[in-house]
C-alpha cells in the first residue's frame, strides 16, 4: 500500500473503533470519562515503559487498560465520598496525567515518548515504523495495534450487544435480571482505554476525544435505533478520518487537527440538516 493509503487506512480504523465505543459513551452519559481516560492512559504507558523498558504495543495496551480501570475506580471512590461526579473526574484525571508527565520528564526523557507527541499524535510518521507479519508482509506497527484493538472492540460489542443495551438503558432492570452491571461498566472502561491508547500514535490524547464523541453525537441525531446509530457512528468516524486527511493535504497542515475539525463539521451538518432531529427539519415541520 502507498504511504497515503496507510495513513488513510490507519485513520479510518481510529474512526471506526472510536465511533463504535463513542455510541455507548454518549448513551451512558460518560463523555467526560473519555476525556479523563484519554489523558490517564499516558500514565499507564509511562509505567509500562518503566517496568518493561520498551515501547512495545502489548505492554502499552496493558498499561493503558490498568490506567483506565484505575481512573474509573478512583472516580467512583471519590464520588462515594460525596465529591461531585464531574469534580471527581476532573481531580482524578489531571492528577494521574500530571504524574505521567513528571515520570516522563524524569525517567524517559531520551526515548521516543514526549508530551507533545502524546497530546497531538503524529500520523505522518506511522508508515515508517513497520513490523513484518507472516502473511500480510510489512505493516506499520500502529496499524497492527489498531486492527487488533478494533477486532476486540467489535467482538465485545457484538457478542454482548443486548447486555450493553440493557445495562445502558436500565441498569436497575439489568441487575434484577442477573447481569453484572458493575463488571460490564469496568469492561467498558477497559475498552475505552484500549481504543484510546491504540489511537494515541495516530491522533493523540486530545484529538481522540473528538473521534470518540463527535461521530456518535452526530449519529444520535439521525436515528432512533441503536444498531443504526452504531453503524452511522462508525461511518462518520471513517468519513472524518478520510476528509480530515484531504483537508490537511490541501491546506498543508496538521492531519490529526484536520480530522478533529472534520468531526466537528459532521456534527454541525447533522445538527442543522438531520431529517429527524435537525434544526432545519424542525422548522419545516409544523
Amino acid at each position: 500500500m502507498t504511504y497515503t493509503g496507510w495513513i488513510i487506512f490507519t485513520a479510518s480504523l481510529v474512526g471506526l473503533s472510536c465511533g463504535f465505543i463513542g455510541v455507548f459513551l454518549i448513551l451512558r452519559r460518560s463523555a467526560m470519562m473519555a476525556d479523563a481516560i484519554s489523558h490517564t492512559v499516558l500514565l499507564g504507558i509511562v509505567l509500562a515503559f518503566l517496568v518493561t523498558q520498551q515501547l512495545s504495543g502489548i505492554y502499552m495496551l496493558i498499561g493503558a487498560m490498568i490506567a483506565g480501570i484505575m481512573t474509573a475506580l478512583f472516580v467512583s471512590w471519590l464520588h462515594s465520598l460525596k465529591v461531585q461526579q464531574e469534580a471527581a473526574i476532573g481531580i482524578v484525571f489531571t492528577t494521574l496525567f500530571a504524574i505521567g508527565i513528571i515520570l516522563i520528564e524524569i525517567f524517559a526523557g531520551n526515548v521516543h515518548l514526549d508530551v507533545q507527541h502524546a497530546l497531538m499524535g503524529e500520523i505522518t510518521f506511522i508508515p515508517w515504523d513497520r513490523i513484518t507479519l507472516p502473511v500480510a508482509g510489512s505493516v506499520p506497527r500502529a496499524t497492527v495495534m489498531l486492527l487488533f484493538v478494533f477486532a476486540i472492540v467489535l467482538f465485545f460489542i457484538t457478542a454482548f450487544y443486548k447486555e450493553w443495551k440493557v445495562t445502558t438503558f436500565d441498569p436497575g432492570l439489568a441487575a434484577s435480571l442477573g447481569i453484572p452491571v458493575t463488571f460490564m461498566n469496568y469492561l467498558f472502561m477497559t475498552l475505552v482505554s484500549m481504543t484510546t491508547v491504540a489511537s494515541f500514535d495516530a491522533v493523540g490524547a486530545i484529538m481522540v476525544v473528538a473521534m470518540l464523541i463527535a461521530p456518535a453525537a452526530s449519529a444520535y441525531l439521525w436515528t432512533d435505533r441503536l444498531s443504526v446509530m452504531l453503524m452511522l457512528s462508525g461511518l462518520f468516524g471513517i468519513l472524518s478520518a478520510v476528509s480530515g486527511y484531504y483537508i490537511a493535504a490541501f491546506l498543508d497542515t496538521s492531519i490529526s487537527g484536520s480530522m478533529a475539525f472534520a468531526t466537528g463539521c459532521i456534527f454541525a451538518a447533522s445538527y442543522l440538516f438531520s431529517p429527524k432531529y435537525g434544526l432545519a427539519a424542525k422548522h419545516i415541520r409544523p
Binding site: 443495551k165 440493557v166 438503558f169 436500565d170 432492570l173 435480571l177 436515528t223 432512533d224 435505533r225 441503536l226
Partner: peptide
C-alpha cells in the same frame, strides 16, 4: 435512548 417500545419489552427476556 434509541429503542422502540418492542425493544424495551424484549429486554425483559434477556
Amino acid at each position: 435512548f434509541p429503542a422502540s417500545a418492542l425493544d424495551v419489552v424484549m429486554m425483559g427476556l434477556y
